[in-house]
C-alpha cells in the first residue's frame, strides 16, 4: 500500500523532533536556565519565541526540553517494552501457573488508573529522573505485557511451535526463534502508541509539578510555569503545549497507517 500524504507528514514531524532532541542543546542560542531578558518579552530577532516567566529564552528552553522530555519518554518506553515483552512471552510460552500469577498481578495493577497510581507513588518517592522513568515504565509495561502475551498466545498455539516442542527444543529457542519473529509487526505499532502514552504522561506529571523538576527545561513544566500569561492575553504556554501535541499527532499518524496496513495485509482478499 502506498503511504498517504498524512503518513509522510507524520514521518517529517518525527524527523524534525528527532533532530531537535539530538542536536537541541548544541543549537540553542542560550543556556538552559540562563536569564537573558525581561519577563514574557514578545517575539524578536534576539528571542524568536520571546522569553518566559523568568526572562529565559523560550526557543533555547524548548530545544533543551526536546532532548530531556523525549529522552525520558523514550527511555521509559524502551524499559516498558523490556519488562512487558519478557514477562508477556514468558506467560504465553510457559503457560500454567506462571501465566496465571503474572496475568492476575498485571490485571490488578491495571485496575488502578495510571495517573492515580503514579501520584500515590510520587507522594513518597522523590521525583528524580530515574524514579520518573521507572514509574512510567512499570505502568506502561502492563499494556505491553497484555499485547505481547496476546500475540504470543496466537503464535504459541500454532503447529510449528508444537513441532519445536516435540523436537525437544529448549525455551530459549522457542521464544527467540519461533515466537518472537512472528510477533514483531504488531509490537512495532504498539511501540509508537506506548511512546505517545509515556510522552503525554510525563508531560502531564510535569504540568502538575510532579514530573521533571525546575530549573531543568521540560515542555509540560514550561506550560505550568507560563500558565499565568494566558490571563494577560499572551499565548505563551500554548507554545510548549503545541510542541507536545504535534509530536504525538505525528507519531499517531504513522502508527495508524502501520496498524491499518498490517491488519489489511493479514485479511487479504477472499477469492
Amino acid at each position: 500500500m502506498r503511504p498517504r500524504a498524512s503518513v509522510l507528514v507524520g514521518f517529517a514531524i518525527i524527523a524534525v523532533y528527532a533532530a531537535a532532541a539530538l542536536l537541541g542543546p548544541l543549537l540553542s542560542p542560550y543556556g538552559e536556565a540562563e536569564v537573558v531578558g525581561d519577563v514574557w518579552e514578545p517575539f524578536s530577532a534576539a528571542h524568536p519565541l520571546g522569553t518566559d516567566n523568568l526572562g529565559r529564552d523560550m526557543l533555547s528552553r524548548l530545544l533543551w526540553g526536546a532532548s530531556r522530555t523525549i529522552g525520558v519518554a523514550l527511555a521509559a518506553t524502551l524499559l516498558a517494552f523490556g519488562i512487558g515483552m519478557t514477562l508477556g512471552y514468558l506467560a504465553a510460552v510457559v503457560g500454567g501457573w506462571v501465566d496465571m500469577i503474572l496475568s492476575r498481578g498485571i490485571d490488578t495493577l491495571m485496575a488502578i488508573p495510571t495517573l492515580i497510581f503514579a501520584l500515590v507513588v510520587l507522594a513518597v518517592l522523590p521525583p528524580s529522573v530515574v524514579i520518573l522513568i521507572l514509574v512510567i515504565a512499570v505502568l506502561d509495561s502492563t499494556r505491553v505485557f497484555r499485547l505481547a502475551r496476546a500475540v504470543a498466545m496466537d503464535v504459541v498455539v500454532m503447529d510449528f511451535v508444537e513441532v519445536a516442542r516435540l523436537r525437544g527444543e529448549r525455551l530459549g529457542w522457542i521464544v527467540f526463534r519461533e515466537v518472537l519473529p512472528n510477533t514483531l509487526p504488531p509490537l512495532i505499532a504498539e511501540f509508537g502508541l506506548r511512546f505517545c502514552f509515556a510522552f503525554l504522561f510525563l508531560s502531564s506529571l510535569s504540568f502538575l509539578g510532579l514530573g521533571i523538576q525546575p530549573p531543568a527545561a521540560d515542555w509540560g513544566g514550561m506550560v505550568r510555569d507560563n500558565a499565568n500569561a494566558i490571563s494577560f492575553g499572551l499565548p505563551i504556554p500554548l507554545i510548549p503545549a503545541a510542541a507536545i501535541a504535534i509530536l504525538t499527532i505525528g507519531v499517531n499518524l504513522v502508527v495508524d497507517w502501520q496498524l491499518e496496513r498490517s491488519s489489511g495485509a493479514r485479511r487479504g482478499v477472499r477469492p
Binding site: V223, P235, A242, I244, I249, D256
Partner: peptide, 23 residues
C-alpha cells in the same frame, strides 16, 4: 479525532481559555 487524542488535556484547555475567555 486522531489529533484530539494526541493532544494533552492542558493544551486543549489553554486553547479554549485563550480563545473563549481571554479573547
Amino acid at each position: 479525532t486522531l489529533s484530539a487524542i494526541s493532544m494533552p488535556e492542558f493544551f486543549i484547555g489553554y486553547i479554549l481559555i485563550f480563545v473563549f475567555a481571554v479573547k
